[in-house]
Design a protein around this nucleic acid. Structure first.
Length: 439
RNA sequence: GCCUUGGUAGUAUAGUCCGGUCUAGUAUAAGCGGCUGUCGCCCGCUGGACCCGGGUUCAAAUCCCGGCCAAGGCGCCA
């Protein structure tokens, strides 16, 4: 197969910009052959680019020899450039087609492809992830990741508007930041290091200088999880703010969720249609339930949870049926929250920590933090952690650390909510989980 | 890590319970041919598969054992 050079051809229009008003105009489009419908005397080519697709019509007896030969050599997934004349027509759904004057085959594809290029036969997630780049070229996936892009923009726009400064904390760390989740070890020259599980301690420290900070970035958990909502590498949206408490950051969080839902609903109408999904803009304020209230509700559903323990997944599923929307769970017991979460002044058995739930999935978690060094040391010990391992963190508390609060949102889980996708691996370009390290 | 289910052409599936006309069916993708208005085009033809190893049996895709792989659930965790 002779490959044509790109040469001096440059795209004049995306496929979606080909409109009936351009009737008679010569255009150059680039894209991939998604379908070929051959009717003998006439051949229809569906060319897809990242914006959509358009039909190129090749009437055998009316086109030149070059076009005829090239169109006969085409196979699905070939990358092509088409220079042609836009023709207004009533015979396509879009009301336009392109009659080619010249076709360049820029890149070929080896058949059989690992996935059905037309998408008529859908493949399983494992097969799709093995051929991920090809999978990502499906219009559903392009739509999905455009929504992710819009979500990220909306997040940054909102937090920046609220006066937060974007930061980047280290991914390579010396010790476990907060206990809890397992870490991936890394060889750091002659030292043992780990991949960060969260920016928690760093972002808290930075409230001393920048007061209001946020970070959007990947973190790593070496957990054995095998579920539709866990990854070994995931994106966390973290904020931390000085001189505020739990209530303030919960308010900020619900406003952020509202803003993101509204923005995506407005700006991604086309993408949501492709995904056959609707974003519901939630009503403010979100409902708030205390841990005790949740336990009582669960008891009514015959789901018993030992007071002080975390809520097990089946119990969350039951909760999701009772509350199919966003809601906060507050007043968590001290035992169920990490050492840096502040205990309530009037009842030290409870914390000023909260979770944001969407149906049965935990979307975010946060709270007021401990900013008293002595309390922090005591809390570390109570949770079986060695204060010596946290000496660099604790030192910062001698420099005038302000009272502060913050939260972290699981970005992929937020995107799942926005797109209606049920497997977290679908919303990650190249997901990492317990058994997947490639591609 | 534990539990459950599964592994059949490139993809998705039927067949597996109850072993034998299974020479393994179908759809889609691919190749060839036909067709001038398709839009999941249509029609005809062609090629393409039982995860690996062992066992039981006259006979194994099918039953048994071991392994590998996957999906999902649980725990962990966000």
């Amino acid at each position: 197969m002779q490959i044509d050079p790109l040469g001096n051809w440059r795209r004049t229009h995306y496929t979606t910009q080909i409109k009936p008003e351009l009737d008679g105009t010569e255009v150059i489009i680039f894209g991939w052959i998604k379908e070929i419908r051959e009717l003998g005397g006439i051949r229809f080519l569906i060319i897809q680019d990242r914006e959509g697709n358009v039909q190129v019509t090749v009437p055998r007896k009316k086109v030149n020899k070059q076009v005829l030969e090239k169109s006969e050599a085409l196979q699905t997934q070939y990358s092509v450039g088409v220079k042609g004349t836009v023709k207004k027509t009533t015979m396509t759904p879009r009301g336009v087609e392109i009659i080619p004057n010249e076709i360049r085959i820029i890149s070929t594809a080896q058949h059989p492809l690992p996935l059905d290029p037309t998408g008529k036969t859908s493949a399983e997630i494992d097969v799709r992830l093995d051929a991920r780049v090809l999978d990502l070229s499906r219009e559903e996936n392009i739509a999905l990741f455009k929504i992710e892009h819009a979500t990220l923009n909306a997040l940054r726009e909102f937090l920046t508007e609220k006066g937060f400064i974007e930061i980047h904390t280290p991914r390579i760390i010396a010790t476990a930041t907060e206990g809890g989740a397992a870490l991936f070890p890394v060889n750091y020259f002659e030292q043992q290091a780990y991949l960060a599980q969260s920016p928690q301690l760093y972002k808290e420290q930075l409230t001393l200088s920048f007061e209001k900070v946020f970070e959007i970035g990947p973190f790593f958990r070496a957990e054995e999880s095998h579920t539709k909502r866990h990854l070994s590498e995931f994106i966390s949206i973290d904020i931390e703010q000085a001189f505020v408490n739990e209530e303030d950051v919960m308010h900020l969080l619900e406003e952020l969720i509202f803003h993101v839902c509204q923005t995506v609903k407005e700006k991604c109408e086309k993408e949501l249609t492709v995904l056959k999904h609707q974003v519901e803009v939630p009503k403010l304020p979100f409902k708030r339930f205390t841990y005790d209230e949740i336990l009582k509700e669960l008891a009514k559903e015959d789901v018993e949870v030992q007071w002080g323990e975390d809520i097990p997944t089946p119990a969350y599923r039951a909760l999701g049926k009772l509350h199919p929307y966003f809601y906060f769970i507050t007043h968590w017991p001290a035992k169920a929250k990490p050492f840096y979460i502040k205990l309530r002044d009037n009842n030290p058995a409870l914390t000023e920590g909260f979770d944001l739930m969407w149906h049965w999935t935990e979307i975010a978690s946060g709270g007021t933090r401990v900013h008293d060094k002595e309390v922090l040391v005591r809390r570390l010990q109570e949770q079986g952690l060695n204060p010596e391992s946290f000496k660099y963190h604790l030192k910062v508390f001698d420099y005038g650390i302000p009272p502060h609060a913050g939260w972290a949102v699981g970005f992929e889980r937020l995107v799942m909510m926005l797109t209606g996708v049920e497997n977290i691996r679908e919303v990650v370009l190249f997901p990492r989980d317990r058994s997947r390290l490639t591609p």
